[in-house]
Design a binder for these strands. Structure first.
Lengths: 242, 242
DNA sequence: GCCGATTTGTCCGTATGTATC
DNA sequence: CGATACATACGGACAAATCGG
């Protein structure tokens, strides 16, 4: 089963924008000619363009054409978060070497307070895993993950020391489909100060999220506490027409 | 010209989810029956559902149905940022009274450094406007806006004291279409400390963004520095199928 | 395990409207 | 005004996943 056509087109055009074949301010070829180029209908081309629009690569202008608004970012921060990525994937994309230190690995039950915070049902068994992410000898991310036991059976300390997502995807054949993220700046806790290399900062950038699998079950609640100035969080938004 | 059909459907279903007619874990009626209900084709229904998916309200499950994954957030923070909103709109949505204090209003020219930071061309004339947002007597947001003069002619101190977006949309008939945002936690500067009611915190949540109008011109660069713990930034993401 | 009904996923082709040039 | 380009919407075909009998 090959990748869907609209996705191939999306990736192709995205690559052409990123490599500078189409530059900021340029217009893409018209939908009509893209239709000819990719041998498909306008609907399919438009779907690919909609994805590029959602990611802030292009801006369709009624009656004129589809303008490229991609400005390559000279990003100084270590991490760029956007979309769904595991830590390992982000590190790879950012071309960074890292190591992971397992702080703790427990099996707990969700009480009422935790249920309210995370969205897990009361009484559910959860793996509570805390890990430290280390770059160049500096601890810059403190991850707390809670996995629904019933969906992630077989999780071990050994796996937690490596990549949990790799285990879920390759061994359990789980597909991660969607997540919701919240970003907030928070005062550093005692735990943060103990584990993270905060330097003179006494605050962290906290990213929490719920992750769903392809069966529609929320199987993970995650909180990442980042040393500030090392992370940027990027989104692009399209204004609702009123 | 009425609102497009797919948008009406999107809003209707969204409201029904938010008011609890469909609850977390429920399945929406099938696309087929929604087609009947809204008297349109499946394509149109699917477009509305795609919007709800992108916002993290629902999760379509192949062969099963469209599951609601909306968990009402008991949000303690004052502001919830997501999508494109002016400050005034966000305040209204969050049902909050506020006032604005104009700090400065200048006309400047973009130099090389500023050009690199903002994306404006070197030599462009910009309105540089700094404003303070105040709630219940506390200054919690420090806004710095740069508007391209050629696109926002007629901007005055008086307008800056009110809502600039209202002026742009109602008077200049400008349409804001898309924006890209970056979120980062940063150490408070002397300016932050001077103007913001930071309490014991010595850091801010910085949100920067570029805003485009419907002619494809980036006419605004904006930076908002928020008192932490008052803001949450929410996004939902859908994982790329690999 | 198979089969058929249901449901979502992809894609096609077409028609009409609207903005720009 | 006509040509071009994007926007919305219709209707239909087939594929793929799920579920119940």
């Amino acid at each position: 089963m090959p990748a869907p056509k609209f996705e191939q087109i999306y990736k192709q055009i995205k690559t052409e924008i990123e490599t500078g074949i189409y530059r900021n301010g340029d217009y893409l070829p018209s939908e009509h000619s893209l239709t000819a180029r990719f041998d498909c209908t306008r609907n399919t081309v438009r779907r690919a363009l909609a994805m590029l629009e959602a990611e802030g690569y292009v801006l369709p202008l009624h009656g004129r054409g589809v303008q490229v608004i991609y400005i390559p970012q000279s990003d100084k921060s270590l991490f760029t978060i956007g979309g769904i990525e595991s830590f390992a994937e982000a590190a790879e994309r950012n071309n960074i070497k890292y190591s992971t230190k397992l702080i703790s690995f427990e099996l707990i039950k969700a009480d009422e307070k935790l249920s309210l915070q995370t969205g897990f049902d009361i009484g559910e068994e959860l793996y509570l895993i805390k890990r430290l992410r280390i770059f160049n000898g500096k601890a810059i991310i403190y991850d707390t993950n809670m996995f629904l036991r019933s969906e992630t059976e077989g999780l071990t300390v050994e796996i937690a020391k490596q990549s949990i997502y790799q285990y879920l995807e390759r061994e359990l054949h789980m597909t991660i489909t969607t997540s919701r993220r919240r970003v907030a700046a928070e005062k550093a806790t005692r735990e943060d100060k103990r584990y993270l290399d905060l330097g003179r900062a006494d605050f962290v950038l906290s990213v929490t999220g719920q992750v769903f699998n392809s069966r529609g079950i929320m199987f993970e609640y995650t909180q990442s506490r980042h040393v500030p100035d090392r992370v940027t969080f990027i989104e692009s938004a399209v204004r609702q027409k009123i």
